[in-house]
């Protein structure tokens, strides 16, 4: 087929493109991923019984703030990486800000705690299951994020896959906050972060394979 003929073909009766396509898809992914994680959490883990009391402490909101602020960064980065010719810019570095804050808070707490209390503060009671549970709760959002990205055109599939994975991980971690009794910043900066990094790493591995176009 000659190029002129291909152009005739493509240009004949083009279907109009609705504006805001990506925004709608990302909203759906957020909703589906969040609802999926919530249902999984209710079915397999259950809400922490003292949630209403915990929600009155500032630390609960600091804890929730970690995944939620990273979610905002991941959304922005995913939206940028989905479009050819749009640079990631500072969105990548922005992901380090919430992590640095929780680490600083954690360092202060560890220094203030007595030597005997430090290990307990870092490991809590649930460090063995925390990252795994977060990764599990992020599965619906992971599928949804790749469903969005597959129809876009990321020119850096590995980075795009990683941020799609981070998007899923932050949703999993945010929902996990409703179950998890741990409140110590050193714990959050370690095990919550690790939990969110599992889907991020899987996304980085899957990106080049699944996001080709």
């Amino acid at each position: 087929m000659e190029t002129g003929k291909l152009i005739d073909l493509l240009a004949r009766e083009p279907t109009p493109v609705r504006a805001g396509w990506l925004r709608r898809r990302l909203a759906i992914a957020l909703l589906v991923g969040g609802m999926g994680a919530l249902l999984m959490m209710l079915a397999y883990l259950g809400i922490r019984p003292d949630l209403s009391q915990a929600a009155r402490t500032p630390m609960f909101w600091v804890k929730l703030g970690l995944p939620v602020s990273l979610l905002a960064v991941a959304l922005l980065a995913t939206a940028r990486l989905a479009r050819p010719g749009v640079r990631l810019g500072r969105a990548g570095v922005a992901a380090l800000v919430p992590v640095a804050l929780i680490w600083m808070l954690g360092a202060v707490m560890l220094l203030e705690a007595g030597p005997g209390a430090r290990v307990a503060m870092l490991l809590g009671a649930t460090w063995k299951v925390c990252p795994f549970n977060i990764a599990m709760l992020s599965i619906p959002a992971f599928i949804a994020a790749f469903w969005v990205m597959k129809d876009m055109a990321p020119t850096r599939p590995r980075v795009a896959g990683a941020f799609a994975g981070l998007f899923a991980g932050t949703i999993g971690a945010a929902i996990y906050c409703l179950h998890c009794p741990e409140m110590a910043p050193p714990f959050l900066g370690t095990w919550y972060l690790l939990g969110m990094l599992i889907p991020t790493a899987i996304g980085a591995l899957a990106g080049p394979r699944l996001l080709r176009w």
Binding site: R83, P84, T155
Partner: peptide, 22 residues
């Protein structure tokens, strides 16, 4: 196929160049 990934607020040149380069 990817024309829905074009953001009208950005230069079309950058968009097309990124596709061609990819």
């Amino acid at each position: 196929n990817q024309r829905h990934t074009y953001d009208p607020s950005l230069p079309v040149t950058a968009w097309v160049h990124a596709i061609a380069r990819y």
